[in-house]
Nucleic acid binder design. Structure first.
Lengths: 217, 217, 217, 217
DNA sequence: TATGAATGAGAGTTCATTCAT
DNA sequence: GATGAATGAACTCTCATTCAT
């Protein structure tokens, strides 16, 4: 990954952003290896070799191996979960940007799909570790609760009030919408790869969310 | 896990089924630890201690640590993916069992949900490893292709011919249906735990699959 | 050191005493190296090499390097400080064994001198570490207070009551007596070595303690 | 420690004396850390941090870490051992300063006691290292032999000739005198600390040296 | 068949020292 | 002169695996 993208991805507000060249090499190598073999199965000596630095150099920048993992994964969590909802939802902006739920989920799906495509290795690392580290799951939950849930719910209720959406509980709509999007993403990035017709399946997923699979009577 | 369940779960056709007592202790301990901490982060000595056997005993039954992993995970793949479709689809059986797509997915969802509930640790191990071992993903794909895909497609086409299902491509319906089910399962077993109202969310997921979230006009 | 001596030296009451052959080799090597180069400057790989075992073997027997140090040093503290006072001081035994303060300190000096001669390396290790680890000093103090001080004081007061000893405070007599003995021991084992005429200097030290260096008028 | 004291302590005749500010910071930090944790257990980075300089700066002033140790310890040896005997023993000066052995040892004890109190950390470092580095012990022996032994012996013989001292061998008197003083110093600075009544114990030690503990008949 | 002591390769980490700036 | 990033050897400790009992 080039220096700029990496810094943008791993930048946390309030932290100093500048990375040294070696640090970038280390992070890129670590992301690649962790994504490929998993955190526990990747040795710091492998990372050092791939990065082309001495093993000691890793520990000059990151106190422990776990520290290196966190510095890769933590800043990403926010960025993957929140941005679709980061906009300032003033009424005008909102109604202009999202005239319908369809426009909203289409934008969200496209936006997150591209993000995942660009940063898939880091996300893979996050997901893997979230399996066994509660710490990781909690960060995800926290970000979701703080930045996403209320706004998402608000949007749904808005479109229920306009009559576009059925009167299902917002929670269920949130879960099923997200499930469908994540299901698409997993299918594309973990199971099928390039052989999938991306645009077609994205569109179908949107239609599925919107109309369901059952024929209208 | 008791001896019988374990043998059933890990039994592969054509193999000798009898397990010694020690072997069962080892497998149970390994499943628990692998699920909790991951394969790479679990040491054989931890397994031995938890199983109450000597370290050497593990290697008497399983040539390597990886061997132990495979003997846990491989037989499970088939069992988790296939059984809903394992029935003999003679016309009568089928029409009798599944008078509608709704009945079919309700049964499938309930059935898989219970299976996951019962064998969650083993499945967690499989998923974790599938992330980085193509070998694992391929086994999954193969089982899916061999035992599931054709039958699932056949069912969909059947209900499209009866007019119950819309004329979406079967692949899309398969993917979205499975996505929704897996989404529910992940939400329940990885994110929310017991705090979720299982029966309610199951029903809503089914409704979502069937009708979608969009109001019918 | 032979197996028997080592076990006797490092045995702690209430612990299991049997040492494996390898364990003995490790302890002997560790004592030798720690005494020669100090704890911090001795690497576990050196110890392993000198003991003729694999490095891993050390950690099978001792959880950490520090553990190895403690298992050498702790049991010795008691044995070096206490035994001269370990006898059961029933009145008869006492008056029979120590008809005078002179007999008492002569026995104590000889006894401790021989013990130091036999176990000098272990004691050297203890002293070194006591310099910077309060933990070590406290163990020493505790043993001294519990097993030595009262009895020593009692003896002194006894010989003050018989008129053999001057009416100095017991604490001062204790400190100066011990100082003189330790001074002799340090001179012999750290500064001069074999070139010192042991018996002569022991006798002179006893005379010094008893009569002082100043001429009687 | 202030600049002047430090320079005085570590000054060796014939060397250039000026220390830079940074050098002083480094030496003070090193003395403190070495005394607290021992030479081998103190890292140069700790010293640099405590001194508030960069790690590289240490190596600009001292070729190696050991060099730093030597530059602290070596000049001190002379100063701790010799000064009591450094005076020019012209007959007049001597008889005027030391009209009796008692006056002599009282002055020596007080003088060395104050020196140790002032420079305890450096001395602690020296003693620690003297345990395993013969080089250090030899320096001590050499200084003792060159600057102390003959003069001390001469003093003793003088007071034997005046009849103040008993006809013990001078070596024994030297050893026991020094032992008693060192014993007091160790008790004060390593074992008891401030809780000891300094003046009282100093006086008692002198009395012990002079009269011994045994009652005069 | 089961044991557990022993192994040695390799893990993560520290550290004295170097050197370009 | 001072810096501190970089180094790589060496450190303590872990681990899957072996094998004599």
């Amino acid at each position: 990954m080039d220096a700029k993208s990496l810094e943008e991805l791993l930048y946390i507000e309030g932290e100093q952003m500048k990375m040294s060249e070696k640090q970038r090499l280390i992070l890129n190598a670590a992301i690649e290896m962790f994504a490929e073999k998993g955190f526990a199965s990747t040795s710091t000596s492998e990372i050092a070799k791939k990065a082309g630095v001495a093993e000691g150099t890793i520990f000059r920048h990151y106190k422990t191996k776990k520290d290196l993992l966190l510095s890769i994964v933590m800043p990403t969590v926010t960025k993957v979960v929140a941005p679709a909802f980061a906009k300032n939802f003033s009424k005008e902006v909102f109604e202009q940007d999202y005239p319908s739920y369809e426009v909203f989920i289409r934008e969200m799906l496209n936006n997150r799909f591209e993000f995942v495509k660009k940063h898939f290795p880091v996300l893979k690392i996050f997901i893997q570790e979230a399996f066994y580290q509660e710490e990781f799951r909690n960060v995800y939950k926290q970000v979701f609760n703080e930045h996403v849930y209320d706004k998402f719910k608000h949007i749904i209720e808005h479109f229920q009030s306009t009559g576009e959406l059925r009167d299902l509980p917002a929670d269920t709509i949130i879960r099923t919408t997200i499930s469908s999007i994540i299901g698409l993403i997993i299918t594309r990035f973990l199971l099928m790869g390039e052989e999938m017709d991306e645009e077609l399946e994205k569109e179908r997923t949107i239609q599925f969310i919107l109309y369901g699979v059952k024929q209208k009577r």
